[in-house]
Design a protein around this nucleic acid. Structure first.
Lengths: 333, 333
DNA sequence: CTGAAAGCGCTAACAG
DNA sequence: CTGTTAGCGCTTTCAG
């Protein structure tokens, strides 16, 4: 079928030859850059189509000084990171950037994930809930713009886009108190990104209402939540529980139900993230929602601002959370 | 601080100049290729270290004919895909390949995810549970090796690595029947990858045991499962239910419990995927496990075999599943 | 509006 | 063992 020639993938030169123009012109057409007549455009586009030409992004990036590539490091296990990645794709597309994804897995740590992205000539990095120490993040930020999402970092070197987690807990506690629940316990996220902030917010709000700010150890997973619930069940049950995140809250819920305790009858439960699981009819968990669209738009915007040299007033961008009330807190005590 | 010079990132030429060698030699050292003395290696490595040199993978790939890059398309929502991605990273590393990730999100379909990967010069594609029609997959496979994971495809053009889903359902049904449950219903996955195969396996096994092979509509999500459970609750309850996947099974479980039905007392439930959620103490769902390590190792191996031109005997590689018995089927009727 | 020429940073032949 | 010489496929001046 094809002539003897090796069936290497077609290059821009092939397109140009077929269309009877120079590669430079073909390039202009493919990039949709100004400087070619409508006729030429049509001819070149047709030629490209016919031979199944696909631009080689490597070569393109190599040549242009800018790669317009944003590196994203995410945890492959975290459902919430999935939501953020979705938002980032959309946000990047709106401003003409591409995303390069690099996952953190049980066998691949953040260092490796970042190293891969650096070799790929990303212009800036967006790190979702990174676990790296502040110093490491600062080092990285010395090389290229770094935007940390969903975690606060005490460093003037990196940009941060996060939810006002403390405020989120205020909303939760205020809501519970309004419902007449005054014996509120917080199930903690330990060292997870955002946990310290949420714990702090809980304590502030509790104090403000004159409550005892009791905190029990939790974690990120359903098992952590179940364990926390067992600890709670060992003593007199509080009338409400705020939990670090929805996964953990699910474990709390499930364990409470197993123990035959009514939710929200005896105990109200509030989660965090407003994940898909919280929205399920069968779970229907009251939860503090993070504004994913806002977070991702701001993260990309901030990265781009750094790249464009746009002056930036604040290193930290804080997005307000929203309380989504569902049945785990619906009925008053 | 830095001299007047533009602070562009250091190139191989910079390293070479600093080490007092040619770029070719520096290249050899950086690639750890044979052809440089220990002394030179040391000197070059030091120079690279000092100026913070990082190889530019784009340029490298542009130059070399092979990219050693495997493109992976995954669904950012699917927890199981996360597990597969983790396994793929490990498998690729073992054979000296890199991964390029491209996510399918609510706003980014498979076409776009694939297109991105093609521009990145991936040598082969690994598609996790793709939704594209067979014809589209075959077209793609005409351009480069394509390995489909976790879905069967009736096409001689693409390689498939999947779990023996029918067999998985056999295991589930056999187990239930051994427990004395003879009124078994399957909650279906609809058009999801793997659903047809699982449904078929259920019917085969049911027939073999002389049971009525009842199937009700389900889906991939917890909500789908809850809806299916409500349908089930409308009539006389079966003594056991097999469900398309764990997420859906979770919805079934939760709805049954809400209705006050005992699991496994009245109804036994079996899920599919042996996901983290199934393993949770509070869920403890009997489930058919897919062998992730095996699936991913085979998928990468198959892609590499195609690239190396190694003759391949079967287009389809089928991995046996394993039944993990937990408390949702533990006690006999 | 179009084409020729010069690289982007790196690797792969070859020479020496 | 080391250096020189060509490009990979594309974009980007800069002439015409």
């Amino acid at each position: 079928m094809t002539p003897a020639g090796p069936d290497r993938r077609p290059t821009l030169a092939d397109v140009a030859a077929r269309a009877g123009v120079s590669t430079a012109l073909a390039s202009i057409v493919m990039r949709e850059a100004p400087g070619a007549s409508a006729t030429t455009r049509e001819r070149v586009r047709r030629a490209a189509e016919e031979i199944g030409y696909r631009p080689d992004s490597r070569a393109r990036l190599l040549r242009s000084s800018r790669s317009r590539l944003l590196g994203v490091v995410f945890g492959v296990q975290h459902a919430f990171h999935g939501d953020l990645v979705s938002g980032l794709y959309a946000a990047a597309e709106r401003v003409g950037y591409e995303l390069a994804l690099s996952a953190v897995t049980p066998g691949r740590d953040e260092r490796r994930a970042v190293a891969g992205l650096l070799s790929d000539r990303c212009e800036a990095l967006v790190l979702l809930g990174p676990h790296s120490p502040t110093a490491a993040l600062a080092d990285l930020a010395a090389r290229l713009p770094v935007v940390v999402v969903a975690r606060s970092v005490r460093s003037a070197a990196v940009d941060v886009v996060r939810t006002a987690d403390a405020e989120g807990m205020h909303l939760a506690v205020d809501h519970l108190v309004a419902l007449g629940r005054r014996d509120v316990v917080h199930v903690d996220g330990g060292r997870a990104p955002g946990a310290a902030e949420r714990r702090r917010g809980f304590r502030e709000a509790a104090r403000r209402h004159g409550l005892e700010a009791r905190v029990v150890a939790g974690g990120l997973t359903e098992d952590d939540g179940a364990a926390a619930a067992r600890a709670l069940l060992a003593g007199p049950l509080p009338t409400a529980v705020t939990v670090f995140n929805d996964r953990c809250a699910l474990g709390v819920l499930d364990e409470l139900r197993r123990a035959g305790r009514a939710v929200p009858g005896e105990v109200a439960v509030v989660g965090y993230d407003d994940s898909r699981i919280a929205r399920l009819a069968t779970v229907d968990l009251t939860s503090v929602a993070q504004d994913v669209a806002q977070l991702t738009t701001l993260a990309v915007g901030r990265a781009v601002a750094r790249l464009d040299g746009t002056p930036v007033e604040r290193r930290e961008l804080v997005v307000p959370p929203r309380l989504v009330v569902r049945s785990t807190t619906a009925s008053p005590r």
